[in-house]
Design a protein around this nucleic acid. Structure first.
Length: 254
DNA sequence: ATGACTCCCAGTGGGAGA
Protein backbone atom coordinates (compact mmCIF):
# COMPACT_ATOMS: atom_id res chain seq x y z
CA UNK A 1 0.00 0.00 0.00
CA UNK A 2 1.39 3.38 -1.00
CA UNK A 3 0.34 6.77 0.30
CA UNK A 4 1.50 10.17 -0.89
CA UNK A 5 1.08 13.86 -0.19
CA UNK A 6 1.61 16.78 -2.55
CA UNK A 7 1.12 20.51 -2.28
CA UNK A 8 0.17 21.29 -5.88
CA UNK A 9 -0.11 25.11 -5.58
CA UNK A 10 -3.34 25.36 -7.62
CA UNK A 11 -4.95 22.20 -8.91
CA UNK A 12 -6.44 24.19 -11.80
CA UNK A 13 -2.90 24.77 -13.08
CA UNK A 14 -1.42 21.44 -11.98
CA UNK A 15 -4.17 18.94 -12.90
CA UNK A 16 -2.33 17.58 -15.97
CA UNK A 17 0.75 16.98 -13.82
CA UNK A 18 -1.28 15.28 -11.10
CA UNK A 19 -2.92 12.99 -13.66
CA UNK A 20 0.46 12.15 -15.22
CA UNK A 21 2.01 11.54 -11.81
CA UNK A 22 -0.81 9.26 -10.69
CA UNK A 23 -0.64 7.31 -13.94
CA UNK A 24 3.07 6.71 -13.32
CA UNK A 25 2.65 6.33 -9.54
CA UNK A 26 -0.68 4.62 -8.89
CA UNK A 27 -0.64 5.17 -5.13
CA UNK A 28 -3.56 3.98 -3.00
CA UNK A 29 -3.97 7.33 -1.27
CA UNK A 30 -2.98 10.85 -2.32
CA UNK A 31 -3.66 13.94 -0.25
CA UNK A 32 -3.42 17.31 -1.96
CA UNK A 33 -2.86 20.74 -0.50
CA UNK A 34 -3.39 24.24 -1.90
CA UNK A 35 -5.95 23.11 -4.46
CA UNK A 36 -7.34 26.69 -4.44
CA UNK A 37 -10.63 25.44 -5.89
CA UNK A 38 -14.16 25.53 -4.56
CA UNK A 39 -15.67 22.03 -4.50
CA UNK A 40 -17.96 22.84 -7.46
CA UNK A 41 -14.87 23.33 -9.62
CA UNK A 42 -12.96 20.27 -8.38
CA UNK A 43 -11.91 18.01 -11.31
CA UNK A 44 -13.73 15.00 -9.91
CA UNK A 45 -14.48 13.27 -13.25
CA UNK A 46 -10.86 13.35 -14.43
CA UNK A 47 -9.63 11.78 -11.19
CA UNK A 48 -12.44 9.23 -11.06
CA UNK A 49 -11.52 8.21 -14.59
CA UNK A 50 -8.10 7.26 -13.20
CA UNK A 51 -9.80 5.07 -10.61
CA UNK A 52 -9.85 7.38 -7.59
CA UNK A 53 -12.64 8.18 -5.19
CA UNK A 54 -12.58 11.90 -4.44
CA UNK A 55 -13.15 13.81 -1.22
CA UNK A 56 -12.49 17.54 -1.47
CA UNK A 57 -12.67 20.49 0.87
CA UNK A 58 -11.88 23.66 -0.99
CA UNK A 59 -12.16 27.38 -0.98
CA UNK A 60 -11.50 30.21 -3.40
CA UNK A 61 -7.95 31.52 -4.01
CA UNK A 62 -6.26 30.07 -0.91
CA UNK A 63 -5.83 26.74 0.83
CA UNK A 64 -8.06 23.81 -0.12
CA UNK A 65 -7.30 20.13 0.46
CA UNK A 66 -8.38 16.81 -1.06
CA UNK A 67 -8.23 13.10 -0.33
CA UNK A 68 -7.97 10.74 -3.31
CA UNK A 69 -8.30 7.03 -2.60
CA UNK A 70 -8.50 3.84 -4.65
CA UNK A 71 -11.05 2.48 -2.17
CA UNK A 72 -13.71 4.93 -1.04
CA UNK A 73 -12.94 6.59 2.29
CA UNK A 74 -15.36 6.46 5.21
CA UNK A 75 -15.88 8.70 8.24
CA UNK A 76 -14.70 11.78 6.37
CA UNK A 77 -13.92 14.82 8.52
CA UNK A 78 -13.19 18.32 7.24
CA UNK A 79 -11.06 20.65 9.37
CA UNK A 80 -10.31 20.10 13.06
CA UNK A 81 -13.48 19.29 15.03
CA UNK A 82 -14.18 21.96 17.61
CA UNK A 83 -11.70 24.41 16.10
CA UNK A 84 -13.60 27.17 14.35
CA UNK A 85 -11.70 27.90 11.15
CA UNK A 86 -12.66 29.78 8.00
CA UNK A 87 -9.72 28.24 6.14
CA UNK A 88 -10.00 24.81 4.47
CA UNK A 89 -6.89 22.99 5.70
CA UNK A 90 -7.71 19.46 6.82
CA UNK A 91 -9.43 16.43 5.32
CA UNK A 92 -9.47 13.01 6.99
CA UNK A 93 -10.92 9.62 6.16
CA UNK A 94 -10.60 5.93 6.92
CA UNK A 95 -9.30 3.62 4.19
CA UNK A 96 -8.75 -0.11 4.72
CA UNK A 97 -8.51 0.30 8.47
CA UNK A 98 -6.10 3.21 8.18
CA UNK A 99 -7.05 6.64 9.53
CA UNK A 100 -5.55 9.15 7.10
CA UNK A 101 -5.34 12.86 7.91
CA UNK A 102 -4.25 15.21 5.12
CA UNK A 103 -3.36 18.70 6.25
CA UNK A 104 -2.16 22.04 4.96
CA UNK A 105 -0.58 23.63 8.01
CA UNK A 106 -0.68 27.44 8.19
CA UNK A 107 2.35 29.21 6.77
CA UNK A 108 2.67 31.70 9.63
CA UNK A 109 4.29 34.40 7.49
CA UNK A 110 6.58 35.84 10.22
CA UNK A 111 7.15 34.99 13.88
CA UNK A 112 5.81 38.39 15.04
CA UNK A 113 2.65 38.31 12.90
CA UNK A 114 -1.02 37.57 13.61
CA UNK A 115 -0.68 34.69 11.17
CA UNK A 116 1.95 33.15 13.41
CA UNK A 117 -0.42 33.42 16.38
CA UNK A 118 -3.05 31.63 14.28
CA UNK A 119 -0.49 28.98 13.32
CA UNK A 120 0.24 28.32 17.01
CA UNK A 121 -3.47 28.05 17.88
CA UNK A 122 -4.04 25.76 14.89
CA UNK A 123 -1.08 23.55 15.84
CA UNK A 124 -2.33 23.19 19.42
CA UNK A 125 -5.80 22.24 18.21
CA UNK A 126 -4.38 19.78 15.68
CA UNK A 127 -2.23 18.05 18.26
CA UNK A 128 -5.11 17.64 20.71
CA UNK A 129 -7.33 16.24 17.96
CA UNK A 130 -4.63 13.88 16.63
CA UNK A 131 -4.12 12.53 20.16
CA UNK A 132 -7.84 11.82 20.42
CA UNK A 133 -7.87 10.21 16.96
CA UNK A 134 -4.90 8.00 17.88
CA UNK A 135 -6.80 6.67 20.88
CA UNK A 136 -9.60 5.55 18.55
CA UNK A 137 -7.52 4.69 15.47
CA UNK A 138 -4.15 3.14 16.42
CA UNK A 139 -3.29 2.88 12.71
CA UNK A 140 -3.01 6.52 11.73
CA UNK A 141 -1.19 8.56 9.09
CA UNK A 142 -0.81 12.34 9.34
CA UNK A 143 0.61 13.80 6.16
CA UNK A 144 0.75 17.05 4.29
CA UNK A 145 2.49 20.38 4.00
CA UNK A 146 3.49 21.06 7.61
CA UNK A 147 5.26 24.34 6.89
CA UNK A 148 7.76 23.27 9.55
CA UNK A 149 11.37 22.23 8.96
CA UNK A 150 11.83 19.94 11.98
CA UNK A 151 15.62 20.14 12.27
CA UNK A 152 18.56 22.10 10.91
CA UNK A 153 19.39 19.23 8.54
CA UNK A 154 16.02 19.97 6.89
CA UNK A 155 17.18 23.46 5.89
CA UNK A 156 19.67 24.32 3.11
CA UNK A 157 21.07 27.26 5.08
CA UNK A 158 20.22 26.78 8.75
CA UNK A 159 22.23 29.81 9.84
CA UNK A 160 20.32 32.17 7.56
CA UNK A 161 17.00 30.53 8.50
CA UNK A 162 17.61 30.38 12.26
CA UNK A 163 14.53 31.73 14.01
CA UNK A 164 12.79 32.43 10.70
CA UNK A 165 9.34 31.15 9.80
CA UNK A 166 9.27 27.32 9.47
CA UNK A 167 12.33 27.08 11.72
CA UNK A 168 11.32 28.79 14.98
CA UNK A 169 11.69 26.89 18.24
CA UNK A 170 7.92 27.22 18.78
CA UNK A 171 7.08 25.53 15.47
CA UNK A 172 9.68 22.83 16.03
CA UNK A 173 8.32 22.21 19.52
CA UNK A 174 4.88 21.58 18.01
CA UNK A 175 6.39 19.11 15.54
CA UNK A 176 8.10 17.32 18.43
CA UNK A 177 4.77 17.34 20.26
CA UNK A 178 3.30 15.29 17.44
CA UNK A 179 6.24 12.89 17.71
CA UNK A 180 5.72 12.70 21.47
CA UNK A 181 2.07 11.87 20.84
CA UNK A 182 3.29 8.63 19.26
CA UNK A 183 4.01 9.48 15.63
CA UNK A 184 7.10 8.64 13.57
CA UNK A 185 8.67 10.81 10.85
CA UNK A 186 8.55 8.18 8.09
CA UNK A 187 11.27 9.87 6.05
CA UNK A 188 13.79 9.60 8.88
CA UNK A 189 13.15 5.91 9.46
CA UNK A 190 15.35 5.29 6.42
CA UNK A 191 18.77 6.35 5.27
CA UNK A 192 18.34 9.42 3.07
CA UNK A 193 20.63 11.49 0.89
CA UNK A 194 21.86 14.64 2.64
CA UNK A 195 20.21 17.86 1.46
CA UNK A 196 16.83 16.21 0.90
CA UNK A 197 14.14 18.87 0.48
CA UNK A 198 10.46 18.85 -0.40
CA UNK A 199 10.15 22.54 -1.31
CA UNK A 200 12.31 24.92 -3.33
CA UNK A 201 11.57 28.61 -3.77
CA UNK A 202 10.52 29.61 -7.28
CA UNK A 203 13.03 32.46 -7.07
CA UNK A 204 16.82 32.47 -7.19
CA UNK A 205 17.18 29.31 -9.31
CA UNK A 206 16.64 27.56 -5.98
CA UNK A 207 15.80 24.16 -7.43
CA UNK A 208 18.76 24.15 -9.78
CA UNK A 209 21.00 25.05 -6.82
CA UNK A 210 19.15 22.59 -4.57
CA UNK A 211 18.35 25.27 -2.01
CA UNK A 212 15.22 24.09 -0.25
CA UNK A 213 13.47 22.99 2.90
CA UNK A 214 11.94 19.70 4.01
CA UNK A 215 8.53 20.88 5.16
CA UNK A 216 6.22 18.21 3.68
CA UNK A 217 5.99 15.19 5.93
CA UNK A 218 4.37 11.80 6.48
CA UNK A 219 3.97 10.84 10.13
CA UNK A 220 2.98 7.27 11.02
CA UNK A 221 1.60 5.94 14.26
CA UNK A 222 3.78 3.52 16.21
CA UNK A 223 1.42 0.68 15.26
CA UNK A 224 2.44 1.12 11.61
CA UNK A 225 6.18 0.86 12.25
CA UNK A 226 6.31 -2.88 11.41
CA UNK A 227 4.65 -2.18 8.06
CA UNK A 228 6.71 0.73 6.75
CA UNK A 229 9.03 -0.24 3.90
CA UNK A 230 10.22 3.02 2.34
CA UNK A 231 9.69 6.78 2.26
CA UNK A 232 10.94 9.01 -0.52
CA UNK A 233 10.60 12.51 -1.91
CA UNK A 234 9.90 12.41 -5.65
CA UNK A 235 11.81 15.35 -7.14
CA UNK A 236 10.84 14.54 -10.74
CA UNK A 237 7.67 16.69 -10.88
CA UNK A 238 9.72 19.70 -9.74
CA UNK A 239 11.55 19.43 -13.07
CA UNK A 240 8.34 19.81 -15.08
CA UNK A 241 7.36 22.90 -17.01
CA UNK A 242 5.35 25.13 -14.62
CA UNK A 243 6.00 22.93 -11.59
CA UNK A 244 4.56 23.25 -8.14
CA UNK A 245 7.16 24.58 -5.73
CA UNK A 246 6.63 21.38 -3.66
CA UNK A 247 7.49 17.76 -4.50
CA UNK A 248 5.36 14.74 -3.55
CA UNK A 249 6.37 12.59 -0.58
CA UNK A 250 5.55 8.87 -0.80
CA UNK A 251 5.47 6.13 1.81
CA UNK A 252 5.17 2.38 1.18
CA UNK A 253 3.47 0.13 3.74
CA UNK A 254 3.41 -3.65 3.66
C1' DA B 1 18.93 43.75 -1.27
C1' DT B 2 13.05 45.07 1.90
C1' DG B 3 14.54 41.44 -4.67
C1' DA B 4 14.46 37.54 -7.63
C1' DC B 5 8.90 33.59 -9.05
C1' DT B 6 4.17 32.01 -9.38
C1' DC B 7 -0.61 32.10 -8.38
C1' DC B 8 -4.88 34.52 -7.75
C1' DC B 9 -8.23 38.17 -8.32
C1' DA B 10 -8.03 41.87 -10.06
C1' DG B 11 -8.44 45.00 -13.89
C1' DT B 12 -2.77 47.50 -16.62
C1' DG B 13 -1.34 46.41 -9.48
C1' DG B 14 -0.95 43.91 -5.08
C1' DG B 15 -1.25 40.17 -1.53
C1' DA B 16 0.35 35.68 -0.27
C1' DG B 17 3.15 31.95 -0.34
C1' DA B 18 7.61 29.96 2.18
Amino acid sequence: MKLATWNVNSLAVRLPQVLDWLAANPVDVLTLQETKLVDEKFPQAELEALGYAVQCFGQRTYNGVALLTRVAASDVVKNIPGFDDEQARVIAGTIQGLRVIGAYFPNGQAPDSDKFTYKMRWLAALRAWVQAELAVHPQLVLMGDFNIAPEDRDVYDPVAWAGQIHCTPQERAHFQGLIAAGLLDAFRLFEQPPKSWSWWDYRNLAFRKNQGLRIDHILLSEALRPRVQACVIDRLPRKNERPSDHAPVVVALA
